[in-house]
Computed example of a mutant assay.
Amino acid sequence: MFDRTQWVLAGMSIALSVQLSQPVAAAAPVGKAVQTAQTNSIGVAEAALKEGLLLYQQGTVEAKKSAIVQFEIALKLFREASDSHGEAIALMGIGKAYSDLGEKLKAREYYSQSLPLFRAASDRSGEAVNLNNIGQVYSD
């Protein structure tokens, strides 16, 4: 039987898997150099997201703090690449790590930023996991 943390991790893993299975599209067709730079940026962002998830799953305070750093790197790169769905996943990861560290206000702040991005992307599972995370912050 899964406990709350395992459900949330499963949801984050699913959301990450869905994100990584999406084709990468250029923000604007202004040339191959821009497309290549954006593709590289998204690839680096996805790698940082994966690293953050691996660190988060270690469960220690230090690993979760390191996960936040990786999620923030991913967030910055997804924003630069105009990948709002990747941005939503990174924001949710930051929120979950802060929640686990007891910083509930920061967690709510990040969850609140990610929710409209999941909705805009029509990612119902990401939205559901995020809403569950928000509920957990209020119930703890």
Results as ranks from 00 to 15, higher is better:
52 G>K: 08
78 F>V: 02
45 A>L: 07
125 S>G: 02
90 A>R: 01
124 R>L: 10
40 N>K: 10
79 R>F: 04
127 E>D: 05
65 K>F: 01
77 L>K: 06
92 M>L: 13
109 E>M: 04
46 E>F: 02
58 Q>V: 11
63 A>T: 01
124 R>C: 02
128 A>H: 12
85 H>M: 15
110 Y>N: 13
50 K>R: 14
123 D>Y: 12
40 N>M: 07
111 Y>W: 09
86 G>V: 04
125 S>Y: 11
61 V>L: 07
117 L>H: 06
128 A>Y: 15
114 S>P: 01
118 F>D: 01
87 E>V: 03
111 Y>P: 00
108 R>I: 15
45 A>M: 09
119 R>Q: 14
117 L>N: 04
90 A>S: 13
48 A>D: 14
63 A>S: 14
43 G>Y: 14
85 H>T: 10
89 I>N: 03
103 E>Y: 08
72 E>Q: 15
76 K>G: 09
46 E>T: 01
118 F>V: 02
90 A>M: 06
126 G>F: 07
75 L>M: 09
62 E>F: 02
46 E>N: 15
116 P>F: 12
54 L>V: 11
121 A>C: 07
121 A>R: 01
39 T>L: 08
46 E>Y: 01
110 Y>E: 05
53 L>S: 06
66 S>E: 13
68 I>P: 00
89 I>W: 00
51 E>C: 03
39 T>C: 05
69 V>L: 14
45 A>Q: 04
110 Y>G: 00
109 E>Y: 09
58 Q>T: 10
76 K>M: 09
125 S>L: 10
95 G>Q: 05
85 H>R: 15
85 H>W: 13
41 S>N: 09
45 A>F: 11
58 Q>S: 13
35 Q>N: 06
82 S>L: 12
37 A>G: 08
88 A>P: 00
91 L>Q: 12
100 D>W: 05
74 A>Q: 06
56 Y>L: 09
40 N>C: 05
86 G>Q: 05
115 L>C: 04
117 L>Q: 09
51 E>A: 10
84 S>I: 07
103 E>R: 12
59 G>D: 15
100 D>F: 04
74 A>I: 02
112 S>F: 04
113 Q>I: 04
93 G>M: 08
44 V>L: 14
89 I>R: 02
71 F>E: 02
93 G>P: 00
115 L>G: 01
125 S>R: 07
103 E>V: 04
64 K>P: 00
72 E>R: 14
52 G>P: 06
126 G>C: 07
131 L>D: 07
40 N>W: 08
123 D>M: 12
108 R>D: 15
89 I>K: 00
36 T>Y: 08
124 R>G: 05
48 A>M: 11
43 G>N: 15
81 A>I: 08
116 P>E: 14
43 G>E: 14
114 S>Q: 06
102 G>D: 08
56 Y>P: 00
124 R>E: 12
50 K>V: 10
106 K>F: 10
123 D>F: 09
73 I>M: 13
